[in-house]
Amino acid sequence: MKNLLLIFIGGGLGSCCRYLLSLWLNTPASNFPLGTFAANVLSCMVLGFASILVIEKLELSTHIRFLIMTGFCGGFSTFSTFDSEIFAIIERDNYLSSLIYAVISILAGLGALFIGMTIGNKVIS
């Protein structure tokens, strides 16, 4: 039950951060949903960093893992919004923009995960 509460708290914080980031970065005229992109990439970086630091280096409790990795990162990133924004771009007949957004998002997420893991490895060596 404690893990569910921690996931709930982390997820709520992550969702609020994603919402605020989208308010700040998304513009109605843009074909590129920068807020969702930034949230997903940052979430990958936090997840990579936490996976190294929380699990391997500091060996923190599973409670902290649930709070940060499952809760916060799960709430901060959003696959459903990512897909719905790709669909909205396609509906505006911007096929190339939708493809670019999808590919860049996936590659940037993988890169951010790697960067986060690299930073995590360097923090406590």
Rank of each mutant, 00 (worst) to 15 (best):
F79T: 02
N31L: 14
G12A: 14
F76C: 11
S97P: 03
P33W: 11
I68P: 00
G111L: 04
L60T: 05
T36P: 14
G11K: 07
G75H: 03
A50E: 02
L13E: 02
L58V: 03
F87E: 13
T78H: 08
L58R: 10
G35L: 08
L34V: 12
E91Y: 00
D83E: 15
E91M: 09
S98A: 15
F37K: 08
Y19C: 01
H63M: 11
T62F: 09
F79G: 02
G74Y: 07
P33G: 11
V54N: 00
R65F: 11
L96G: 06
I9N: 05
F49C: 04
P33E: 13
F8Q: 04
S61I: 07
S105G: 08
S30K: 04
L113W: 07
P28E: 13
C17L: 12
G75R: 04
L110Y: 12
F37H: 02
L23G: 10
E56G: 02
I86R: 14
A108C: 12
F49Q: 05
I100M: 06
C17Y: 00
H63K: 13
F87P: 01
I7N: 08
L21T: 12
A39Y: 07
T36A: 10
A88N: 10
E56H: 09
M45P: 07
L47F: 06
I89P: 05
D93P: 00
G11E: 10
L42Y: 07
G10Q: 05
V103C: 12
Y19M: 05
S15W: 09
P33M: 12
A50Q: 02
D83A: 15
I104P: 01
G11C: 12
F114E: 01
H63T: 08
T118W: 14
S80I: 02
V41R: 01
L20G: 05
A50P: 02
S97H: 14
